[in-house]
Simulated scan of single mutants.
Amino acid sequence: MCKGLSAIPSSCLEKAKGMRVKLSHLAEKQDWVHKHRANEEKLPQDLESLLNSKLGVQAFRWFLRSEFSEENLEFWLACEEYKNSSGSKLAGKAQSIYNQFINPEAPREVNLDSETREGLTGLMQEPRADTFDEAQHRIFSLMAKDSFPRFQRSLRVL
């Protein structure tokens, strides 16, 4: 009699689940590359161009998700949205970004140096539209030097 999945060790099931997630992200990314090429669009050569493209952001997000490292992109996007917020909503949005990405115990903590992190902590009392500019710039630089080149290499493989 077949015992089904209950006979498979849980560690194997977890690995299989992880592989399924990575394969689904790869398939989505491959679809994006084919659509991009079908429309005879040039693949983005720099991170700024990629971030100005809705499809580019989506593909980059899929790639980062497959590497379990999408928090930098999500932080950068949250900062862009924050800059376009009205004055009355700035404090609440600033606190939300801080709690989600900056706080040392944040669930999606981004990799910032202690000086930038401490500077942000001080600005949280009276946040302005440019509160996260320096941190956003540092995360952009980190993505441009690290994850974006890996993303480009992954596109060449497809």
Rank of each mutant, 00 (worst) to 15 (best):
V110M: 06
N99W: 05
H137C: 12
P107V: 00
W76P: 03
K42N: 10
S69I: 00
S85H: 13
R128Q: 08
Q152T: 15
V33F: 15
S85A: 14
F101C: 05
S147N: 03
M19W: 08
K17E: 01
H25L: 10
S6F: 02
S11G: 05
E126M: 10
H137I: 10
I102M: 04
R153D: 15
P149L: 05
R65T: 00
R138L: 07
L50V: 05
S114V: 03
H137M: 15
M1Q: 08
S88F: 13
K42E: 14
I102P: 00
K89D: 08
E115P: 02
F132E: 09
H137L: 15
N84K: 12
L51N: 02
R117V: 01
E134C: 09
K89E: 09
M143G: 05
G122T: 15
S86Y: 10
G119L: 04
S53M: 06
R138I: 02
I8V: 15
G18K: 13
I8L: 09
N111E: 12
V21A: 14
Y82L: 00
E118N: 11
F68G: 02
F148G: 11
N99L: 06
A7W: 10
L142C: 08
N52Y: 04
Q58I: 06
S114K: 07
A27R: 07
E134R: 12
A7Y: 10
D130Y: 04
S24N: 08
R117G: 06
P9R: 09
E81W: 09
C2R: 11
A106N: 02
V157N: 02
D130V: 01
Y82P: 01
L55H: 15
V21H: 14
I97M: 00
D146L: 12
E71C: 01
V157G: 01
N99G: 08
S86F: 12
S147A: 08
K93W: 12
L77F: 02
P104H: 05
V157W: 13
Q152D: 11
L73S: 01
V157Y: 13
K83Y: 06
E14T: 07
